[in-house]
Design a protein around this nucleic acid. Structure first.
Length: 438
RNA sequence: GUGGUUGUAGCUCAGUGGUAGAGCACUGGAUUGUGGCUCCAGUGGUCGCGGGUUCAAUUCCCGUCAGCCACCCCA
């Protein structure tokens, strides 16, 4: 093997792609039902977009972006979806067209991190954004929809963490407060956190190092520093979540790695341990200042989330390998191949999925293959059938076969397909898919 | 980026300083045109790659690449 896929990126073969399709279909149907329309933005953006909106000091921008120069352009393959969608919102003047915009997106993202369990260099996110509604009702609605999504995908062991980080002013005050609190304790912090004390003291709260956790015990809570409006927003959000019956924990230590967040932050974490250290299935928050920061004439509040599809697929029972064809054509002699091609084409035009093996194998080999690919029926055309203008239709589930004239093939196939498979033929995976999955 | 760990058949893995094996999968046969079970046989490997030690390296040593895991951070 001379050329391999690059590190941290992988091929998704058809059986696995079938699981992706089900996941994507479930996601689309749930978010479209809630009023979101799909937006497709370029995978390549100006490097400046991410540097300005995500923040030059964040890990994502400082060390994880795939960036390059092309002539006079500085370009970056998108590491996340929110910045590009917001850029598209501003560039296309959406604020002038409608008061509230609900978008969703789905696709690959790229970060040059060291791969680990649940972490890849090309990974996929599906996310939603709401522009133009500053109220806590849409925060609650969005969070509720996130739980609905993962429930529909069969995930049960999760907990929703919610926090508020306040507006930009609050965050600055909180940062100072944390510096004041941790500075005298600096000697007992981990090396990483001593560095964080300078760069981003909020992150110390989130550290897994026991020394940092011990030191964080008495740290000031952001709640005390929230201004009146921030606090009211949070209180209303919590009230709505209770009205909706969405279980969540208020987690004042929840911090997210992107600079653009304001007020509401949330994260949905898996609790089963299946994802190792990468327990965040989905994360999001409000970013009320980004749209104006991008140059929009007027400020537009916004909120959104992104879900990691690889991580969902790692914990969802969504099994369902690719279905086999309705009818497998087995021409037994070369002179029957042409006729089989014509019959198969005709069945397909009537909506019957067909596969044809023209390699000239033995009947046994063809039946074995039809069985292995879980075909329901086999249409056999051998010398005898050809001479009489007939085709043998064998039902692999019921061990029965009939011989019919060419012209009657569709009726015979339709009649057979109308009879359900015997229940023992249903795969366990299909039975495990939750009822809410389409 | 740091640390740990593993690379032998398509997959899961044995194994030995004297150039390799099992199970599953695949192909064929037992059944002159009938699958799933069973039995038999066969195809398939530069033992990740490069260098070193040695009469001889898949085995020992070094490097490198890749996978996995943890840290940092995140989906």
């Amino acid at each position: 093997m001379v050329v391999r896929a690059v590190r941290g990126m992988k091929d998704i073969l058809p059986d696995e792609a079938a699981r992706w399709q089900r996941l994507e279909h479930t996601f689309r149907s749930i978010v479209e039902r809630a009023g979101y329309g799909e937006v497709r933005t370029p995978h390549l953006e100006s490097t400046e977009l991410f540097v300005r909106e995500i923040g030059a000091d964040t890990d994502v921008v400082a060390k994880e972006m795939y960036s390059f120069s092309r002539h006079d352009d500085e370009l970056t393959v998108r590491p996340e979806g929110t910045a590009g969608a917001a850029r598209a919102y501003v560039q296309n003047n959406l604020a002038q067209l409608e008061p509230v915009t609900r978008w969703y997106y789905l696709g690959p993202m790229f970060r040059a991190e060291r791969p680990a369990k649940g972490r890849f260099r090309q990974f996929h996110q599906a996310g939603c954004e709401i522009y133009g509604d500053a109220g806590p009702a849409c925060d609650a609605e969005l969070i509720a929809m996130c739980t609905e999504l993962v429930m529909a995908l069969g995930v049960r062991d999760f907990v929703v963490h919610v926090n508020s980080i306040g507006s930009a002013g609050t965050r600055a005050r909180y940062r100072d407060a944390l510096r004041d609190y941790f500075s005298p304790l600096a000697g007992s912090l981990s090396d990483d956190s001593q560095r964080r004390l300078v760069t981003n003291p909020l992150r110390i709260l989130d550290s897994k190092d026991p020394r940092d956790q011990e030191a964080s015990r008495g740290a000031p809570s952001v709640s005390a520093l929230l201004d009146e409006d921030d606090a009211a927003h949070l209180a209303k959000l919590r009230g709505y979540l209770e009205d909706l019956g969405v279980p969540y924990v208020f987690d004042p230590r929840l911090v997210r790695g992107l600079d653009y967040y304001t007020r509401t932050l949330f994260e949905l974490k898996i609790t089963s341990g299946e994802l190792g250290a990468q327990d965040a299935l989905l994360g999001g928050g409000r970013y009320d200042e980004m749209i104006q920061h991008l140059g929009n004439k007027k400020p537009v509040p916004a909120i959104g989330f992104a879900m990691g599809l690889e991580r969902i697929l790692a914990v969802t029972p969504l099994g369902a390998p690719r279905a086999g064809p309705d009818c497998f054509f087995a021409p037994l002699v070369e002179s029957a191949v042409g006729r089989s091609l014509v019959l198969a084409k005709s069945l397909r035009e009537h909506g019957v999925s067909c596969e044809l093996d023209g390699r000239g194998q033995s009947v046994k080999a063809m039946l074995r293959r039809a069985n292995a690919m879980k075909a329901r029926l086999v249409a056999i055309v051998g010398q005898e059938e050809l001479e009489r203008g007939e085709v043998t239709v064998k039902d692999l589930d019921r061990h029965e076969q009939v011989r019919v004239p060419f012209a009657d093939l569709f009726d015979a196939v339709r009649a057979r397909l109308a009879v359900p498979r015997s229940s023992s033929e249903l795969s366990r995976d299909e039975l495990r898919v939750p009822a809410s999955v389409p």
